[in-house]
Design a binder for these strands. Structure first.
Length: 460
RNA sequence: GUGGUUGUAGCUCAGUUGGUUAGAGCAUUAGAUUGUGGUUCUAAGGGUCGGGGGUUCGAGCCCCCUCAUCCACCCCA
Protein backbone atom coordinates (compact mmCIF):
# COMPACT_ATOMS: atom_id res chain seq x y z
CA UNK A 1 0.00 0.00 0.00
CA UNK A 2 1.26 3.42 -0.91
CA UNK A 3 2.24 5.59 2.00
CA UNK A 4 0.09 8.67 2.15
CA UNK A 5 0.73 11.70 4.21
CA UNK A 6 -1.97 11.71 6.90
CA UNK A 7 -4.11 14.83 7.01
CA UNK A 8 -7.63 15.96 7.79
CA UNK A 9 -9.99 17.95 5.56
CA UNK A 10 -9.71 21.69 5.46
CA UNK A 11 -11.47 23.45 8.30
CA UNK A 12 -11.81 20.35 10.49
CA UNK A 13 -10.01 19.57 13.72
CA UNK A 14 -8.94 16.69 15.89
CA UNK A 15 -9.55 17.25 19.57
CA UNK A 16 -6.83 15.55 21.58
CA UNK A 17 -7.36 14.22 25.12
CA UNK A 18 -6.36 17.41 26.95
CA UNK A 19 -8.58 19.54 24.73
CA UNK A 20 -11.49 17.09 24.93
CA UNK A 21 -11.43 17.12 28.70
CA UNK A 22 -11.81 20.88 28.71
CA UNK A 23 -14.45 20.82 26.00
CA UNK A 24 -16.40 18.21 27.93
CA UNK A 25 -16.22 20.40 31.00
CA UNK A 26 -17.83 23.28 29.10
CA UNK A 27 -20.42 21.09 27.41
CA UNK A 28 -21.33 19.32 30.65
CA UNK A 29 -21.79 22.63 32.42
CA UNK A 30 -24.10 23.83 29.67
CA UNK A 31 -25.96 20.51 29.52
CA UNK A 32 -26.57 20.37 33.26
CA UNK A 33 -27.91 23.91 33.19
CA UNK A 34 -30.25 23.21 30.30
CA UNK A 35 -31.57 20.22 32.19
CA UNK A 36 -32.22 21.97 35.48
CA UNK A 37 -34.17 24.58 33.56
CA UNK A 38 -36.44 21.81 32.28
CA UNK A 39 -35.13 21.47 28.74
CA UNK A 40 -35.18 18.08 27.08
CA UNK A 41 -32.42 16.49 25.01
CA UNK A 42 -32.76 16.07 21.27
CA UNK A 43 -30.44 14.75 18.58
CA UNK A 44 -31.16 14.75 14.87
CA UNK A 45 -29.27 12.98 12.06
CA UNK A 46 -26.05 14.44 10.67
CA UNK A 47 -27.74 14.47 7.26
CA UNK A 48 -31.13 15.79 6.26
CA UNK A 49 -33.09 15.58 3.04
CA UNK A 50 -31.81 18.21 0.69
CA UNK A 51 -35.32 19.66 0.38
CA UNK A 52 -35.52 20.20 4.12
CA UNK A 53 -32.51 22.47 4.09
CA UNK A 54 -32.46 24.27 0.74
CA UNK A 55 -33.93 27.73 0.62
CA UNK A 56 -33.88 28.17 4.40
CA UNK A 57 -30.63 30.07 4.70
CA UNK A 58 -30.72 32.23 1.58
CA UNK A 59 -28.72 31.77 -1.61
CA UNK A 60 -25.44 31.96 0.22
CA UNK A 61 -26.57 29.29 2.64
CA UNK A 62 -27.41 26.95 -0.20
CA UNK A 63 -23.93 27.48 -1.58
CA UNK A 64 -22.29 26.75 1.74
CA UNK A 65 -24.20 23.54 2.34
CA UNK A 66 -22.28 20.26 2.13
CA UNK A 67 -24.24 18.07 -0.24
CA UNK A 68 -23.86 14.33 -0.09
CA UNK A 69 -23.20 12.49 -3.31
CA UNK A 70 -25.77 9.83 -4.13
CA UNK A 71 -24.35 6.35 -4.07
CA UNK A 72 -24.56 3.18 -6.14
CA UNK A 73 -27.63 2.64 -8.27
CA UNK A 74 -29.17 6.04 -7.68
CA UNK A 75 -26.10 7.71 -9.08
CA UNK A 76 -25.95 5.29 -12.01
CA UNK A 77 -29.57 6.07 -12.85
CA UNK A 78 -28.69 9.75 -12.80
CA UNK A 79 -26.03 9.21 -15.44
CA UNK A 80 -28.52 8.42 -18.25
CA UNK A 81 -30.55 11.65 -18.25
CA UNK A 82 -27.40 13.68 -17.70
CA UNK A 83 -25.71 12.09 -20.68
CA UNK A 84 -28.87 12.63 -22.74
CA UNK A 85 -29.11 16.29 -21.86
CA UNK A 86 -25.47 16.82 -22.75
CA UNK A 87 -25.98 15.10 -26.10
CA UNK A 88 -29.11 17.08 -26.88
CA UNK A 89 -27.47 20.20 -25.51
CA UNK A 90 -30.50 20.98 -23.36
CA UNK A 91 -30.26 22.43 -19.88
CA UNK A 92 -30.67 19.84 -17.17
CA UNK A 93 -33.16 21.21 -14.67
CA UNK A 94 -32.89 20.13 -11.05
CA UNK A 95 -29.65 18.42 -11.94
CA UNK A 96 -28.42 18.71 -8.40
CA UNK A 97 -31.07 16.27 -7.24
CA UNK A 98 -29.76 13.59 -9.55
CA UNK A 99 -26.40 13.77 -7.87
CA UNK A 100 -27.49 14.50 -4.36
CA UNK A 101 -30.62 14.09 -2.28
CA UNK A 102 -29.09 14.68 1.13
CA UNK A 103 -26.98 17.31 2.82
CA UNK A 104 -25.14 17.68 6.10
CA UNK A 105 -26.98 19.81 8.64
CA UNK A 106 -26.16 23.48 8.40
CA UNK A 107 -27.49 24.49 11.80
CA UNK A 108 -29.61 22.97 14.56
CA UNK A 109 -32.64 25.22 14.23
CA UNK A 110 -34.08 23.99 10.92
CA UNK A 111 -33.72 20.29 11.83
CA UNK A 112 -35.44 21.15 15.12
CA UNK A 113 -38.29 22.86 13.27
CA UNK A 114 -38.56 19.80 11.03
CA UNK A 115 -38.70 17.56 14.08
CA UNK A 116 -41.42 19.65 15.70
CA UNK A 117 -43.49 19.65 12.51
CA UNK A 118 -43.12 15.88 12.16
CA UNK A 119 -44.01 15.14 15.77
CA UNK A 120 -46.46 17.91 16.53
CA UNK A 121 -49.12 15.56 17.87
CA UNK A 122 -46.86 13.75 20.30
CA UNK A 123 -45.07 16.75 21.74
CA UNK A 124 -46.26 18.45 24.90
CA UNK A 125 -46.38 22.16 24.06
CA UNK A 126 -44.57 24.29 24.82
CA UNK A 127 -41.69 22.06 23.77
CA UNK A 128 -38.39 22.96 25.35
CA UNK A 129 -35.42 21.19 23.85
CA UNK A 130 -31.66 21.46 23.92
CA UNK A 131 -29.33 20.09 21.31
CA UNK A 132 -25.53 19.94 21.18
CA UNK A 133 -24.19 18.59 17.92
CA UNK A 134 -21.77 19.48 15.15
CA UNK A 135 -22.90 21.34 12.05
CA UNK A 136 -21.11 21.71 8.72
CA UNK A 137 -20.55 24.61 6.38
CA UNK A 138 -18.52 24.64 3.17
CA UNK A 139 -17.21 28.05 4.07
CA UNK A 140 -13.63 29.06 3.47
CA UNK A 141 -11.97 28.48 6.84
CA UNK A 142 -10.08 31.16 8.69
CA UNK A 143 -9.25 32.17 12.23
CA UNK A 144 -11.97 30.94 14.61
CA UNK A 145 -14.03 29.69 11.73
CA UNK A 146 -14.35 26.07 10.77
CA UNK A 147 -16.13 23.76 8.35
CA UNK A 148 -17.21 21.53 11.18
CA UNK A 149 -18.14 23.09 14.50
CA UNK A 150 -20.46 22.52 17.41
CA UNK A 151 -23.60 24.40 18.26
CA UNK A 152 -25.28 24.22 21.65
CA UNK A 153 -28.83 25.41 21.32
CA UNK A 154 -31.81 25.65 23.64
CA UNK A 155 -35.19 26.66 22.23
CA UNK A 156 -38.76 26.90 23.41
CA UNK A 157 -41.50 26.57 20.82
CA UNK A 158 -45.24 26.94 21.22
CA UNK A 159 -45.28 29.71 23.79
CA UNK A 160 -45.50 33.46 23.43
CA UNK A 161 -44.82 34.09 27.09
CA UNK A 162 -42.01 36.52 27.83
CA UNK A 163 -41.15 34.34 30.82
CA UNK A 164 -39.25 32.23 28.32
CA UNK A 165 -37.05 35.17 27.44
CA UNK A 166 -36.26 35.69 31.10
CA UNK A 167 -35.50 32.00 31.58
CA UNK A 168 -33.12 31.94 28.64
CA UNK A 169 -31.28 34.98 29.94
CA UNK A 170 -31.00 33.19 33.27
CA UNK A 171 -29.53 30.15 31.54
CA UNK A 172 -26.74 32.32 30.16
CA UNK A 173 -26.24 33.89 33.55
CA UNK A 174 -26.13 30.52 35.29
CA UNK A 175 -23.74 28.88 32.84
CA UNK A 176 -21.21 31.69 32.86
CA UNK A 177 -21.46 31.92 36.64
CA UNK A 178 -20.72 28.19 36.88
CA UNK A 179 -17.79 28.54 34.52
CA UNK A 180 -16.39 31.25 36.75
CA UNK A 181 -16.55 33.90 34.06
CA UNK A 182 -16.89 37.55 35.05
CA UNK A 183 -16.98 40.75 33.09
CA UNK A 184 -19.06 39.38 30.23
CA UNK A 185 -22.12 41.32 29.10
CA UNK A 186 -25.63 40.12 28.36
CA UNK A 187 -26.96 42.53 25.77
CA UNK A 188 -30.58 42.58 24.70
CA UNK A 189 -32.72 44.45 22.23
CA UNK A 190 -36.01 43.88 20.45
CA UNK A 191 -36.50 43.59 16.73
CA UNK A 192 -39.78 45.45 17.03
CA UNK A 193 -37.86 48.48 18.28
CA UNK A 194 -35.75 48.36 15.14
CA UNK A 195 -38.88 47.95 13.02
CA UNK A 196 -40.32 50.97 14.81
CA UNK A 197 -37.17 52.91 14.01
CA UNK A 198 -37.47 52.05 10.32
CA UNK A 199 -41.08 53.23 10.42
CA UNK A 200 -40.25 56.51 12.16
CA UNK A 201 -37.42 57.09 9.69
CA UNK A 202 -39.98 56.58 6.95
CA UNK A 203 -38.23 53.59 5.42
CA UNK A 204 -39.88 50.38 6.70
CA UNK A 205 -38.93 48.85 3.35
CA UNK A 206 -35.24 49.15 4.22
CA UNK A 207 -35.44 47.49 7.65
CA UNK A 208 -32.85 44.84 6.74
CA UNK A 209 -30.42 47.40 5.32
CA UNK A 210 -30.81 49.55 8.41
CA UNK A 211 -30.18 46.67 10.81
CA UNK A 212 -27.17 45.45 8.84
CA UNK A 213 -25.65 48.93 8.92
CA UNK A 214 -26.22 49.74 12.59
CA UNK A 215 -25.05 46.30 13.62
CA UNK A 216 -21.59 47.44 12.57
CA UNK A 217 -21.63 50.52 14.83
CA UNK A 218 -19.11 49.33 17.41
CA UNK A 219 -16.86 48.00 14.65
CA UNK A 220 -16.73 50.92 12.22
CA UNK A 221 -18.10 53.93 14.14
CA UNK A 222 -20.96 56.31 13.58
CA UNK A 223 -19.49 58.13 10.57
CA UNK A 224 -19.05 54.97 8.55
CA UNK A 225 -22.50 53.74 9.55
CA UNK A 226 -24.03 56.93 8.17
CA UNK A 227 -21.99 56.48 5.02
CA UNK A 228 -23.27 52.94 4.65
CA UNK A 229 -26.87 54.03 5.25
CA UNK A 230 -26.47 56.55 2.50
CA UNK A 231 -25.11 53.90 0.16
CA UNK A 232 -28.06 51.69 1.00
CA UNK A 233 -30.41 54.39 -0.21
CA UNK A 234 -31.43 56.48 2.80
CA UNK A 235 -31.90 60.23 2.64
CA UNK A 236 -30.35 62.80 4.95
CA UNK A 237 -33.37 63.38 7.19
CA UNK A 238 -33.92 59.64 7.41
CA UNK A 239 -30.32 59.15 8.50
CA UNK A 240 -30.71 61.90 11.10
CA UNK A 241 -33.56 60.00 12.74
CA UNK A 242 -31.36 56.93 12.93
CA UNK A 243 -28.45 58.94 14.31
CA UNK A 244 -30.64 60.31 17.10
CA UNK A 245 -31.66 56.76 17.85
CA UNK A 246 -28.04 55.60 18.02
CA UNK A 247 -27.22 58.34 20.51
CA UNK A 248 -29.65 56.92 23.05
CA UNK A 249 -27.63 56.22 26.18
CA UNK A 250 -27.74 55.86 29.96
CA UNK A 251 -29.15 53.23 32.29
CA UNK A 252 -31.70 50.73 31.04
CA UNK A 253 -34.62 52.80 32.32
CA UNK A 254 -33.17 56.02 30.89
CA UNK A 255 -32.79 54.35 27.53
CA UNK A 256 -36.37 53.05 27.69
CA UNK A 257 -37.66 56.56 28.41
CA UNK A 258 -35.76 58.04 25.47
CA UNK A 259 -36.98 55.22 23.22
CA UNK A 260 -40.59 55.81 24.24
CA UNK A 261 -40.28 59.48 23.33
CA UNK A 262 -38.68 58.72 19.97
CA UNK A 263 -40.94 55.86 18.92
CA UNK A 264 -44.25 57.12 20.38
CA UNK A 265 -45.88 57.19 16.93
CA UNK A 266 -44.95 53.62 16.08
CA UNK A 267 -47.25 50.98 17.59
CA UNK A 268 -44.74 48.27 16.63
CA UNK A 269 -41.90 50.13 18.29
CA UNK A 270 -43.95 50.74 21.44
CA UNK A 271 -44.81 47.04 21.57
CA UNK A 272 -41.10 46.23 21.44
CA UNK A 273 -40.41 48.67 24.28
CA UNK A 274 -43.16 47.11 26.34
CA UNK A 275 -41.77 43.63 25.78
CA UNK A 276 -38.19 44.51 26.59
CA UNK A 277 -39.09 46.50 29.68
CA UNK A 278 -41.07 43.55 31.00
CA UNK A 279 -38.12 41.25 30.49
CA UNK A 280 -35.71 43.69 32.13
CA UNK A 281 -37.93 44.76 35.01
CA UNK A 282 -39.89 41.66 35.97
CA UNK A 283 -37.64 41.24 39.02
CA UNK A 284 -38.28 37.52 39.25
CA UNK A 285 -34.68 36.52 39.74
CA UNK A 286 -31.30 37.97 40.53
CA UNK A 287 -28.72 38.09 37.79
CA UNK A 288 -25.04 37.96 38.60
CA UNK A 289 -24.55 39.96 35.41
CA UNK A 290 -27.52 42.23 34.76
CA UNK A 291 -28.75 42.28 31.14
CA UNK A 292 -28.03 45.55 29.36
CA UNK A 293 -30.36 47.15 26.85
CA UNK A 294 -28.33 47.88 23.72
CA UNK A 295 -30.48 49.62 21.10
CA UNK A 296 -27.74 49.21 18.49
CA UNK A 297 -27.78 45.42 18.79
CA UNK A 298 -29.23 44.12 15.53
CA UNK A 299 -27.90 40.58 14.78
CA UNK A 300 -27.75 39.57 11.16
CA UNK A 301 -30.36 36.83 11.10
CA UNK A 302 -33.52 38.42 9.78
CA UNK A 303 -35.95 35.78 10.99
CA UNK A 304 -35.88 37.26 14.48
CA UNK A 305 -39.08 39.12 15.35
CA UNK A 306 -38.89 39.86 19.07
CA UNK A 307 -36.16 39.97 21.67
CA UNK A 308 -32.61 39.52 20.44
CA UNK A 309 -29.73 38.56 22.74
CA UNK A 310 -26.01 38.62 22.43
CA UNK A 311 -23.37 37.68 24.97
CA UNK A 312 -20.11 39.52 24.73
CA UNK A 313 -16.92 38.06 26.14
CA UNK A 314 -15.09 40.13 28.76
CA UNK A 315 -13.44 43.08 27.05
CA UNK A 316 -10.01 41.94 28.30
CA UNK A 317 -9.91 38.95 25.94
CA UNK A 318 -11.10 40.67 22.74
CA UNK A 319 -12.97 37.65 21.50
CA UNK A 320 -16.35 39.26 20.88
CA UNK A 321 -19.56 37.32 20.88
CA UNK A 322 -19.75 34.02 22.77
CA UNK A 323 -23.45 33.39 22.37
CA UNK A 324 -26.63 34.75 20.91
CA UNK A 325 -30.27 34.16 20.28
CA UNK A 326 -33.71 35.62 19.96
CA UNK A 327 -37.38 35.12 19.26
CA UNK A 328 -38.66 34.13 15.87
CA UNK A 329 -42.26 33.72 14.75
CA UNK A 330 -43.59 30.99 12.54
CA UNK A 331 -40.46 28.91 12.25
CA UNK A 332 -42.33 25.69 11.50
CA UNK A 333 -44.65 27.31 8.96
CA UNK A 334 -42.34 26.15 6.18
CA UNK A 335 -43.03 22.58 7.25
CA UNK A 336 -46.81 22.95 7.33
CA UNK A 337 -47.24 23.92 10.95
CA UNK A 338 -48.00 27.66 11.02
CA UNK A 339 -48.39 29.99 13.96
CA UNK A 340 -45.80 28.46 16.27
CA UNK A 341 -43.54 31.01 17.90
CA UNK A 342 -40.13 30.11 19.23
CA UNK A 343 -37.36 31.66 21.22
CA UNK A 344 -33.87 30.27 21.59
CA UNK A 345 -30.26 30.79 22.50
CA UNK A 346 -26.96 29.37 21.36
CA UNK A 347 -23.56 28.95 23.01
CA UNK A 348 -20.35 29.35 21.02
CA UNK A 349 -18.32 26.52 22.54
CA UNK A 350 -15.12 27.17 20.63
CA UNK A 351 -15.02 30.78 21.65
CA UNK A 352 -15.94 30.05 25.26
CA UNK A 353 -13.03 27.61 25.22
CA UNK A 354 -10.67 30.36 24.08
CA UNK A 355 -12.00 32.75 26.71
CA UNK A 356 -11.55 30.26 29.56
CA UNK A 357 -8.12 29.35 28.28
CA UNK A 358 -6.96 32.95 28.12
CA UNK A 359 -8.32 33.76 31.56
CA UNK A 360 -6.99 30.49 33.01
CA UNK A 361 -10.42 29.46 34.29
CA UNK A 362 -10.33 25.72 33.63
CA UNK A 363 -10.38 23.91 36.98
CA UNK A 364 -7.68 21.39 37.78
CA UNK A 365 -10.29 18.63 37.86
CA UNK A 366 -11.16 19.29 34.23
CA UNK A 367 -7.57 18.63 33.24
CA UNK A 368 -6.72 15.43 35.06
CA UNK A 369 -7.24 11.93 33.79
CA UNK A 370 -5.82 8.92 35.61
CA UNK A 371 -5.06 9.56 39.25
CA UNK A 372 -3.27 6.39 40.22
CA UNK A 373 -0.87 4.22 38.25
CA UNK A 374 -0.08 0.75 39.58
CA UNK A 375 3.41 -0.24 38.53
CA UNK A 376 3.85 -3.59 36.85
CA UNK A 377 6.61 -5.32 38.78
CA UNK A 378 6.06 -8.88 37.69
CA UNK A 379 3.40 -11.56 37.92
CA UNK A 380 3.31 -11.81 41.72
CA UNK A 381 2.94 -8.04 41.95
CA UNK A 382 -0.07 -7.75 39.66
CA UNK A 383 -1.92 -10.56 41.42
CA UNK A 384 -2.22 -8.19 44.38
CA UNK A 385 -2.24 -4.95 42.41
CA UNK A 386 -5.15 -5.75 40.12
CA UNK A 387 -7.81 -6.22 42.85
CA UNK A 388 -6.58 -3.08 44.60
CA UNK A 389 -6.88 -1.15 41.36
CA UNK A 390 -10.44 -2.41 40.87
CA UNK A 391 -11.20 -1.33 44.42
CA UNK A 392 -10.21 2.25 43.53
CA UNK A 393 -12.18 2.17 40.30
CA UNK A 394 -15.31 1.10 42.17
CA UNK A 395 -14.86 4.20 44.32
CA UNK A 396 -14.68 6.29 41.17
CA UNK A 397 -10.97 6.98 41.32
CA UNK A 398 -9.47 6.65 37.82
CA UNK A 399 -6.71 4.05 38.03
CA UNK A 400 -4.69 1.98 35.63
CA UNK A 401 -2.03 -0.73 35.66
CA UNK A 402 1.10 -0.41 33.55
CA UNK A 403 0.74 -2.78 30.64
CA UNK A 404 3.99 -4.70 31.03
CA UNK A 405 6.84 -5.30 33.42
CA UNK A 406 9.17 -2.69 31.97
CA UNK A 407 11.96 -1.02 33.82
CA UNK A 408 10.71 1.18 36.61
CA UNK A 409 12.34 4.17 35.03
CA UNK A 410 10.16 3.74 31.97
CA UNK A 411 6.98 3.29 33.98
CA UNK A 412 7.68 6.45 35.96
CA UNK A 413 8.32 8.40 32.80
CA UNK A 414 4.95 7.24 31.52
CA UNK A 415 3.27 8.48 34.71
CA UNK A 416 5.10 11.76 34.44
CA UNK A 417 4.13 12.29 30.84
CA UNK A 418 0.50 11.51 31.56
CA UNK A 419 0.56 13.80 34.63
CA UNK A 420 -0.60 10.97 36.84
CA UNK A 421 -0.13 12.21 40.41
CA UNK A 422 0.14 8.90 42.29
CA UNK A 423 1.95 5.64 41.71
CA UNK A 424 1.45 2.47 43.69
CA UNK A 425 4.41 0.15 44.17
CA UNK A 426 3.91 -3.50 45.02
CA UNK A 427 7.34 -5.04 44.82
CA UNK A 428 8.86 -8.06 46.56
CA UNK A 429 9.50 -6.24 49.81
CA UNK A 430 5.98 -4.80 50.02
CA UNK A 431 4.45 -8.17 49.19
CA UNK A 432 6.53 -9.88 51.87
CA UNK A 433 5.23 -7.46 54.49
CA UNK A 434 1.67 -7.30 53.15
CA UNK A 435 2.08 -3.61 52.56
CA UNK A 436 1.68 -1.07 49.77
CA UNK A 437 3.90 1.86 48.84
CA UNK A 438 2.17 4.99 47.59
CA UNK A 439 4.21 7.76 46.04
CA UNK A 440 2.94 11.25 45.30
CA UNK A 441 4.86 12.31 42.23
CA UNK A 442 4.17 16.00 42.75
CA UNK A 443 5.55 16.20 46.28
CA UNK A 444 7.87 13.18 45.77
CA UNK A 445 6.68 11.88 49.13
CA UNK A 446 6.40 8.14 49.54
CA UNK A 447 4.77 6.16 52.28
CA UNK A 448 4.30 2.50 52.93
CA UNK A 449 0.94 1.50 54.40
CA UNK A 450 -0.96 -1.65 55.28
CA UNK A 451 -3.67 -3.00 52.97
CA UNK A 452 -6.31 -1.73 55.42
CA UNK A 453 -4.86 1.78 55.37
CA UNK A 454 -4.64 1.66 51.59
CA UNK A 455 -8.38 1.21 51.46
CA UNK A 456 -8.84 4.41 53.45
CA UNK A 457 -6.21 6.42 51.60
CA UNK A 458 -7.60 9.58 50.01
CA UNK A 459 -6.06 10.13 46.59
CA UNK A 460 -6.51 13.84 46.23
C1' G B 1 -16.01 34.50 -4.33
C1' U B 2 -11.49 38.56 -3.91
C1' G B 3 -6.43 39.59 -2.12
C1' G B 4 -2.05 38.02 0.29
C1' U B 5 1.25 34.29 3.29
C1' U B 6 3.75 29.83 3.88
C1' G B 7 4.96 24.60 2.16
C1' U B 8 12.34 21.25 3.96
C1' A B 9 12.50 14.70 9.25
C1' G B 10 6.73 12.80 13.50
C1' C B 11 6.72 18.46 15.46
C1' U B 12 9.09 23.63 15.32
C1' C B 13 12.28 25.59 11.95
C1' A B 14 17.73 26.79 9.65
C1' G B 15 19.67 26.23 4.76
C1' U B 16 24.22 32.59 2.12
C1' U B 17 24.41 35.60 -5.02
C1' G B 18 22.07 28.47 -7.69
C1' G B 19 27.61 24.55 -6.29
C1' U B 20 30.04 18.06 -3.46
C1' U B 21 26.66 13.35 0.36
C1' A B 22 20.29 18.77 2.90
C1' G B 23 21.11 20.37 8.86
C1' A B 24 19.59 21.72 14.22
C1' G B 25 16.36 21.45 18.45
C1' C B 26 12.36 18.70 20.32
C1' A B 27 10.10 13.89 19.95
C1' U B 28 10.90 8.37 19.20
C1' U B 29 13.92 3.82 20.11
C1' A B 30 18.16 1.59 22.50
C1' G B 31 22.13 1.94 26.06
C1' A B 32 24.91 4.31 30.39
C1' U B 33 21.25 2.43 35.20
C1' U B 34 18.91 -5.37 38.46
C1' G B 35 13.30 -0.93 42.97
C1' U B 36 12.35 5.27 42.24
C1' G B 37 10.70 9.76 37.14
C1' G B 38 11.25 15.15 35.27
C1' U B 39 18.43 16.12 34.64
C1' U B 40 22.64 14.54 31.79
C1' C B 41 25.57 11.75 28.19
C1' U B 42 26.10 8.26 23.93
C1' A B 43 24.14 5.94 19.69
C1' A B 44 20.39 4.77 16.12
C1' G B 45 16.18 5.19 12.98
C1' G B 46 13.54 8.74 10.28
C1' G B 47 13.60 13.28 3.88
C1' U B 48 10.46 11.53 -3.62
C1' C B 49 12.86 19.47 0.06
C1' G B 50 4.03 19.60 -1.29
C1' G B 51 3.28 17.71 -6.70
C1' G B 52 4.24 18.39 -12.07
C1' G B 53 6.86 20.88 -15.87
C1' G B 54 10.82 24.38 -17.41
C1' U B 55 15.80 27.20 -17.35
C1' U B 56 20.93 25.38 -16.23
C1' C B 57 26.95 21.67 -16.63
C1' G B 58 24.31 21.77 -11.83
C1' A B 59 17.86 23.62 -8.56
C1' G B 60 15.69 23.13 -1.60
C1' C B 61 16.96 28.13 -3.85
C1' C B 62 15.18 30.99 -10.34
C1' C B 63 10.43 30.74 -13.87
C1' C B 64 5.37 28.59 -15.05
C1' C B 65 1.29 25.50 -13.59
C1' U B 66 -1.09 22.87 -9.72
C1' C B 67 -2.37 21.28 -4.79
C1' A B 68 -2.40 22.27 0.30
C1' U B 69 -2.07 25.80 4.39
C1' C B 70 -2.72 30.06 7.23
C1' C B 71 -4.27 35.25 7.33
C1' A B 72 -7.45 39.50 5.78
C1' C B 73 -12.16 41.02 3.20
C1' C B 74 -17.49 39.51 2.16
C1' C B 75 -20.57 36.75 5.34
C1' C B 76 -21.23 34.20 9.50
C1' A B 77 -20.91 30.84 14.73
Amino acid sequence: MAKIKPSIPQGTRDFGPQVMRKRNYIMQTIRETFQVFGFQPLETPAMEQLDTLTGKYGDEGDQLMFKILNNGETLNKAATPIAASIQENTPLTRSVRLFSEKALRYDLTIPFARFVAMNQNELAMPFKRYQMQPVWRADKPQRGRYREFYQCDADVVGSNSLLNEIELLLIYDTVFEKLGLHGHELRVNNRKILSGLAEIAGRPDLLTDITVAIDKLDKIGIAKVKEELQQRGLGETEINVIENFLHIDGSNSEKLAQLSALLKNSPTGMKGIEEISFVLNAGLAKFSSTPILDVTLARGLNYYTGMIIEVKAPASVAIGSIGGGGRYDDLTGLFGLPGISGVGISFGVDRIYDVLEQLVLFPEAAQQSTKVLFLHLGEASIQTAFPLMMQLRRKGIPAELFHEASKMDKQLKYADKRSIPYIVILGDSELAENKVSIKNLNTREQQTVTLEDFELFAFE
